[in-house]
Computed example of a mutant assay.
Amino acid sequence: MKLQKDVDELIKKMGGYWTPSQMLTALVEEVGELADVILSFEGVKGKKSRAKLEEELGDVLFALICIANYFEVDLESALRQTIRKYSTRDL
């Protein structure tokens, strides 16, 4: 997946990957920030912003790609397996 390669190149320029627990913590933090933005779209918290939603989705994806790269998981293959699972199980 090209995105995984792009993230890998950037991370290596920045000094390398964090430990798995640090990357997981970063992912959880980003998911929390995404939750805040989604709450704003539901009128619960703050002012909704499409740009902020896109930013937080990108941050979550970046953090997830870092974890996948660290463990050498092909995310496209993993997602295709998940799509097959839901296609057969939930239809």
Rank of each mutant, 00 (worst) to 15 (best):
M1A: 13
L3R: 12
Q4R: 09
Q4S: 07
K5S: 09
K5A: 08
D6S: 06
D6W: 11
V7S: 00
D8G: 00
E9Q: 15
E9F: 09
E9L: 13
L10Y: 13
L10W: 15
I11Q: 01
I11E: 00
K12M: 10
K12T: 11
K12V: 07
K12N: 10
K12I: 08
K13N: 15
K13T: 12
M14D: 10
M14Y: 05
Y17M: 03
Y17F: 11
Y17K: 04
Y17G: 00
W18A: 10
W18C: 06
W18L: 14
W18Y: 08
T19I: 06
T19C: 11
T19R: 14
P20F: 06
P20R: 06
S21V: 08
M23D: 03
L24E: 08
L24G: 04
A26Y: 11
A26V: 15
L27G: 01
L27P: 02
L27A: 06
V28F: 13
V28T: 14
E29R: 05
E30F: 03
V31R: 07
V31F: 09
G32H: 13
G32Q: 07
G32Y: 12
E33K: 07
A35Y: 12
A35R: 05
D36P: 00
V37D: 01
V37M: 08
V37L: 08
V37R: 05
I38D: 04
I38T: 06
L39I: 04
S40C: 10
S40I: 08
G43L: 08
K47W: 06
K48C: 03
S49A: 06
S49D: 10
S49G: 05
A51E: 15
K52F: 05
K52H: 12
K52T: 09
L53C: 07
E54F: 13
E54N: 08
E56M: 13
L57N: 06
G58M: 09
G58W: 07
G58H: 13
G58T: 14
G58C: 13
D59Q: 05
D59Y: 09
D59N: 10
V60N: 10
V60Y: 07
L61V: 13
A63W: 02
L64M: 15
I65Q: 00
C66V: 02
I67C: 02
I67A: 00
I67Q: 05
I67G: 00
A68G: 03
N69M: 03
Y70P: 00
F71M: 15
E72D: 14
E72S: 09
V73G: 02
D74V: 08
L75M: 15
L75W: 04
L75C: 11
E76K: 11
S77W: 05
S77T: 15
A78W: 07
A78M: 14
R80S: 14
Q81R: 04
T82V: 12
T82K: 09
I83E: 13
I83R: 08
R84I: 14
Y86M: 03
Y86C: 02
S87T: 06
S87K: 06
S87L: 07
S87M: 07
S87Y: 08
T88I: 07
T88E: 11
T88Q: 12
R89P: 00
R89A: 10
R89C: 06
D90F: 11
D90P: 00
L91T: 15
